[in-house]
């Protein structure tokens, strides 16, 4: 069974077409990256798959559950980390994780979350006193501690320093090794090249290339994915 299957996905805002018939699929345990510049339509695709907004046309299935039809069931097996997500500032890190865990079955979720977050004693501090890196780590913990079948992460390392970004990339790879499927969007092409098994280059609402990073580099005779992208859109 495919973890994710998207066919001719379209999203229109009035007359404007933000996503123009996108198709791709993701295998179970795979880290799949959507790469493209700002405004390419990456977040719109992720929001549709996370059941936040409605598709205008096409089809999307997550573990055989149809997006737009089985949304309540899909929400039980996915987690979504928006690009600029925040947490409830009046809560402590522990209270926030407990709040999220309370919507899922399993008492071990909170303990797992505390362990993953690596926030130590700061887990009992109020979130308003956290640094940006700590908040992002807490949010990623929130997204992963429930052990979703599919984790949808929008720009997971956005705005983070080198050390925090590296820690988060390692965390994603570790969970993928244990069988979790990831759909990641980023405009940081070097980062995606490092963590993704396969990538799709997206520009102006369309996928222009899709394959393993090495194969794309080979195809375009490029040093990195950034070069691939530049050559592909020409």
């Amino acid at each position: 069974m495919k973890a994710l299957e998207v066919k001719n996905l379209v999203k229109r805002y009035g007359e404007f077409e933000a996503v123009k018939g996108v198709s791709f699929s993701v295998e179970e345990g795979e880290i799949f990256g959507l790469i493209g510049p700002n405004g390419a339509g990456k977040t719109t695709i992720l929001r549709i798959l996370a059941t936040l907004i409605k598709k205008s046309d096409g089809e999307a299935k997550i573990f055989d559950l149809e997006v737009g039809v089985d949304d309540n069931e899909i929400r039980k097996i996915i987690s979504y980390l928006p690009e600029e997500a925040g947490a409830y500032k009046n809560m402590t890190g522990r209270q926030y994780l407990a709040f999220i865990a309370s919507f899922f079955d399993g008492k071990e979720i909170l303990q797992r979350g505390i362990k993953i977050s690596k926030l130590g004693k700061r887990i009992d501090d109020k979130i308003e006193n956290y640094s940006k890196g700590m908040v992002r780590r807490l949010l990623l913990t929130r997204a992963l501690m429930t052990m979703p079948k599919l984790a949808i992460l929008d720009e997971p390392t956005s705005g983070l320093d080198v050390i925090n970004a590296s820690e988060i990339r390692e965390m994603i790879k570790r969970f993928a090794r244990n069988g979790m499927t990831f759909l990641i969007s980023s405009h940081n092409m070097l980062e995606v090249e490092y963590i993704c098994d396969r990538i799709a280059l997206i520009d102006k609402g369309k996928i222009i290339e899709m394959d393993k990073p090495e194969k794309l580099k080979e195809k375009y005779n490029a040093k990195n994915i950034e070069d691939v992208f530049i050559k592909a859109i020409k």
Partner: peptide, 14 residues
Amino acid sequence: ENKTLETLLTLPVK
């Protein structure tokens, strides 16, 4: 403002 709504809406809650 705190960008928490999207997370809340993707949780398994009606």
